[in-house]
């Protein structure tokens, strides 16, 4: 579903991502881990069409993000760490706006929007302006609108910011259920316990290079001492030299 070949991005003399090769299968829950500044966000920006790679290629659902960006974006859902919402729209108007961007007919988006707002417990607040929502509610509305167009792949960047434990639990269950239904999830997170719990496979990026790739158990086996994913991550991402 997501394929990346020799993907690199340089900002002047600094290489943020270097020759990344990766393939995420349909229905796979992939967690992308790495310390701050490792190149996770740059990779995500290239996968969502926000950045042009310096070299290499990326495909989503078989569509090249460089040459067929609209086809690729139609199949992607993106949840950033700090979602953008228009504060002066109501929750329902926001859903309608997103449906318009994805060219969804009313008979398709309306029932889907109702269902998603119900799932994220926002049905009672749909007529309120977003400016009156709490941070957690905004995050949930962003989730709901991301799934509105039934994407085939969802790219999630640290989605837990501002969510309380109950909502984190709900979002985790929702994402897991979606992956079981065939949705491909590419999630960047610093929460290693959640990655350990959810991921089918984990990729660790460090200093712009993909250092390790495998199932959680395979990654754990790389450490000199067996332990949690957190301990293994700390050992694998120790600065060289």
């Amino acid at each position: 579903m997501i394929r990346v070949e020799q993907l690199s991005k340089a900002f002047g003399p600094k290489t943020a991502v270097s020759e990344l090769d990766l393939e995420v299968e349909v229905g796979e829950f992939f967690c992308f881990l790495g310390p701050n500044g490792a190149g996770k966000t740059t990779t995500i920006k290239m996968l969502t069409g926000l950045l042009r790679p310096t070299s290499g290629q990326a495909w989503v659902a078989g569509f090249d993000l460089q040459t067929q960006p609209l086809e690729a974006k139609r199949r992607i859902g993106y949840i950033p760490d700090h979602p953008f919402l228009y504060p002066r729209l109501t929750g329902w108007e926001w859903m309608e706006f997103v449906a318009g961007l994805y060219r969804m007919p009313a008979e398709r988006w309306r029932p889907r929007a109702e269902e998603l707002l119900e799932t994220f417990e926002l049905s009672a607040e749909t007529d309120q302006l977003v400016e009156h929502y709490s941070h957690g509610m905004r995050q949930k509305l962003s989730f709901a609108s991301t799934f509105l167009h039934e994407p085939q792949a969802v790219i999630v960047d640290e989605p837990w910011v501002g969510l309380d434990p109950k909502n984190i639990h709900r979002v985790k269950a929702f994402l897991k259920q979606q992956a079981q239904l065939g949705l491909t999830i590419f999630m960047s997170t610093h929460s290693l316990t959640i990655a350990e719990e959810l991921a089918d496979r984990v990729g660790i990026i460090h200093q712009g290079r993909l250092r390790h790739l495998g199932t959680v158990d395979e990654i754990k086996a790389l450490a000199s001492h067996p332990g949690s994913l957190e301990n293994v991550f700390l050992e694998l991402t120790q600065d060289e030299g």
Binding site: L89, F97, G100, R103, M104, P105
Partner: peptide, 16 residues
């Protein structure tokens, strides 16, 4: 019903 155009969606959101 015909699909809504993204441009129309943007203008509609702005006017709202």
């Amino acid at each position: 019903m015909s699909p809504r155009g993204p441009l129309r969606a943007i203008f509609r959101a702005k006017s709202r």
